[in-house]
């Protein structure tokens, strides 16, 4: 089982269509930015974080948003609560973590970072 983290805290996964469908994409962290494509039917894109030290997913999320993707965007894997604000600011809507990680990093630690819209230098740079 896995847990979905949003600004509201922990919740079960409500994406029932799975990732083997036309409407969802499951991307590894080494996805070539040239191959980063989606179409009008894409409703969900999930980007893998094999390790929390692998920061490529943040740039992939940002590029997807810059390229006009408006659907649901999820970071999945080894993302720690300290990275929640980075994930949200890069364009992710939510983070999918394992039960094991959720036990070690309980909901309160994620909620501690739910104020990601505050104290953000980027918002000052970009108006």
């Amino acid at each position: 089982m896995s847990i979905i983290v949003t600004d509201a805290g922990f919740a079960p996964d409500d994406w029932s269509a799975g990732f083997e469908t036309e409407t969802a994409l499951d991307l590894p962290s080494d996805t070539d930015p040239e191959a980063l494509e989606f179409d009008a039917d894409t409703q969900m894109i999930r980007v893998d974080f094999p390790s929390f030290a692998d920061g490529r997913g943040f740039t992939l999320a940002r590029l997807l948003r810059l390229r006009g993707y408006k659907g649901r965007l999820r970071a999945k894997g080894h993302v720690i609560s300290d990275q929640y604000a980075m994930a949200r600011r890069s364009g992710f809507d939510e983070v999918e973590i394992s039960d094991e990680l959720a036990a070690r990093q309980p909901e309160a630690e994620w909620l501690f970072r739910s104020n990601w819209q505050q104290h953000d230098y980027q918002s000052r740079m970009r108006g």
Binding site: F52, A53, D54, G55, F58, T59, R62, Q83, A85, M86, A87, R88, R89, S90, H119, D120, Y121, Q122, R124, M125
Partner: peptide
Amino acid sequence: RQWSTDHPEFQFL
């Protein structure tokens, strides 16, 4: 400095 500080994409380069 301000642009790079806590830049969300670039904390795990």
